[in-house]
Every structure is written in C-alpha cells, then in structure tokens.
Design a protein around this nucleic acid. Structure first.
Lengths: 223, 223
DNA sequence: TTAATTAAATATGTCGACAATATAGACAAT
DNA sequence: ATTGTCTATATTGTCGACATATTTAATTAA
C-alpha cells in the first residue's frame, strides 16, 4: 500500500531510507554523505537530497548548512520529550474523536480490540505491538483534525518506533494496556470527550513511566 | 538576526517566500510554478525546490508528485483545527514551563508583561499583537522540550500568523488576554504545573471562541 | 454536437558538472 | 608541545540540460 503511492524515485528512496534508519541499519547519529548514499541506493544526488529533506521533516534527520545531515541521536531525554508531546496531542485526539468518530468507526475499533484480546490471551506480544499502534492510529484519524493527524502519523510515530526498535522496548505492559484501551474506547462510545482525553493522557503517561523505569534499570546494568 | 543565519541562497529564498506567503503577496491556494518562481526570485530551480521543501515542512505549502506545489487554502475549519492543536501543545508547554523555566526566565517574562501593560494602557493594539506572540513564544521555549518548540515555532506559529494577517484578526481581546497572561505566569511562578496548563488551555480556548464569533459574523456580512 | 483519441506543450523529476564552503593535514612560529 | 596559518581534499550548494509525467489543444469518429 505504501509502495503503491511511491510514484517517484525520491519517494521510494525516502521510504527505504526511513526503514533503514528506524530499524538501525543506518546507525543513529551517523553522518549521511550524499555521495555515499547516492552510490549505495543507485540514484543521483538530487534524489538523495530530496529524500533527506523528507527525513528531516519526520525529525529523523538533522541538517546543517554546508556541513551535511546526520541521523538524530537517541537519548533518554529525547524519548521522554516525545512522550510528553504524545500525551498532549493524543489526549486532544481522543477528546475530538469522542465527538467526531462515526458509529461505524467506533464499532470497527471495538472489533479490533476483540481480535486483539484473543491474541493477548495467546501471549503473542509481537501482535500486541502492532495492535497498539493500530489502536492509537485509529483514534488519531478519528479526531478528523488534519494537523493533528499529519503531525503524529507522518512525524512522531516513526520516531517512537525508532526508539522502540533500537532500545528493544517492544510489547510492554501487554494486559494493562489492553484494559486501558477498552476504557478509552468506552468513553468515546459514550461521547464523553472530557473523560476520553483524560484516560488517553493517563494511558500514555503510564507508558512513559514504564519506559523510564526500564531505562534506569538498563543504565544500572551498564555500570 | 534571521538573515544572519540564512547562509545559503536557499535559506534566503525560503525566508522571502515565507514572508510573501504569510502576508498574502503570494495568494492562498495559488500554484507555485518552479520555473516562474525561479525567474521571479532570480535563482535556479534547485534553490526554489529546496525552498518549497521547507515551506512544506511548515504546512504552508502542499505538494503532489508530478503535479506541483500549492499554497495552502485557508478555511474556518483549518483555523479551528490549528487552535485545537495549539490548546494541546501550549497547554503542555505551560505545564512543563512551570517545572523547567529558570527564575531568571520567569523574571524576564514578568518584566515583559509590565512594559506590555503600559502599551495596553496607551491603546496601541499593534504592539499587543507582537507582545502576545512574544509571551507565548517564551512559555514554549521555557518548556525546554525540543519537539514541542520546533513544532510550534517553526511550524504552527507561521500558519497562525498567516491566518491573522489575511483574515485581519490582529490584536483581539486586548485587555482580557493581558489578565490571562498574568494569571498564567503567576501559576508558573508558583511552580503549579497543573494550574498553568489549565489556564493556558482556557486562554487559547477563549481565543478560539472569539475567532469563531468573528468568523460567523463576517460570513453573515457577506450574505 | 459530443466523446474519445492523439499530439503538442508545459511542468516536474532526475542527472552530471561546476562553484563555494568546510574539514583535515602539513608546516611554521611562539 | 601548542597554537595558528595555509594548503589540499572532500562535501555540500547551485546550475543548466535532459527524461518523464501531466495537462491542454486539436483532430477524428460516432
């Protein structure tokens, strides 16, 4: 589906590079030499520059004039900041979704949680990861706020995934998160915007605290 | 100060074009022909493409593959969506600022409000506009959250200004807004994160309602 | 007259080459 | 030994030209 929309060579290169960065094939903090990448991906420098421009738009890459581009460096602080922004934006998304989601969309997301529940019972945490992403994605889209959607979907979510993959924090808090999802969609179903926002904010806030614990535990192990 | 940092030709062209778009010299919704702009600004197409890329990053321009770029079209819904995002992000900014701003930064912003008050008494509403921007800017920077800062300062604020300029909504709610600013900085000064966020959200929510009223009044006049 | 097809014109996408800037290393002076 | 300057090298920035896709206009058939 993504590759279908990638009509131009720069589109494909952008998507490939984004994958390589998110999954750590291109290391965090490493320099992006235009000539190197040009030969590596078999396209001209113009295409690489275009791709780098879009990567910069997702906050995956930082550029300095006359010096070049680097992949962003991951840090505990950076992840915390990301979750603070998520708390604010997704909280608002849930609030708006309570008003703007259609009954069909709500029914769909309930069905998603049902199939999801089966997988949680089966103890398959990988699908939990995908399911978690899907749940949050649908709420955000349900807000119907274009600014909100593009900021999260085209920007922040890729960065979050980069952290998850590279710091190995996939599938945390499986069962707890599932219950929280249930409560959120319940509030949306009741068209209770106030509660939906509060529950979503708490949900993300708990995720943040969970991650902070893991981070501090990991840093203690590295002493 | 801005022009100093604009080292490359693309930097300058970007800043010039942004100004022209925000102030309506290049009309909303109009097509951005690369060849036209190239001759208009006296630079090569590569420079124009680079500039358009950055304009797209600010959500001031939208691009379609093999078709081209257009300046975004302003709409009442778009402005509402913008204020919803502002409410969420600046609310969080105020919350974080209550923890992260230094005493000096808080003193500075209080001083700003004092000089500001003199100007409000003098009835000069243009400076109120600039002062309002400055106040919000300082809170956001005071949050110390880089994601938050860049999203607002490099993205949303330019769009907001574009709306204000082109819909002629400069300097609204002069005295009321001033009091609200006072209360917000008071909460931050007390290091009361919870209250700071709530007050900031209300402040922006009131602005939104004020704008909605003006918009509906304007549309009635156009019947 | 309308619809469909095709061809011309125009715009964006991509490329390789050159210009301007920054980095690294050698060398000189303190 | 360290600092500063200068030179050589490599990288990014900019340019004009060509390839490819889209749009417009013209032409033909129904």
């Amino acid at each position: 589906m993504l590759v279908d929309q990638a009509v131009t060579s720069a589109d494909k290169t952008f998507l490939t590079m984004r994958k390589d960065i998110v999954e750590g094939l291109i290391r965090q903090g490493s320099k992006l030499s235009e000539t190197d990448l040009s030969s590596r991906y078999g396209v001209s420098r113009a295409v690489i520059r275009e791709a780098i421009n879009r990567l910069e738009r997702c906050s995956l890459v930082e550029r300095k004039a006359n010096v070049g581009a680097r992949v962003v460096a991951l840090s505990p602080e950076g992840l915390i900041e990301l979750y603070q922004v998520r708390e604010a934006l997704e909280g608002m998304a849930a609030r708006l979704a309570a008003t703007n989601m259609t009954d069909n969309e709500i029914a769909d997301i309930n069905q998603l949680l049902n199939t999801h529940f089966e997988e949680v019972k089966g103890g398959d945490s990988y699908y939990q990861e995908a399911g978690d992403v899907d749940f949050h994605y649908r709420i955000v889209v349900g807000s119907k706020n274009k600014q909100l959607i593009s900021t999260l979907v085209e920007g922040i979510y890729h960065l979050v995934r980069m952290y998850r993959v590279q710091l190995g924090m996939e599938g945390p808090r499986v069962t707890t998160a599932y219950d929280e999802h249930r409560h959120i969609i319940q509030a949306i179903s009741n068209r209770d915007a106030e509660l939906a926002e509060m529950l979503m904010r708490r949900h993300i806030y708990y995720s943040k605290r969970n991650i902070e614990q893991k981070l501090s535990a990991a840093s203690e192990n590295n002493l």
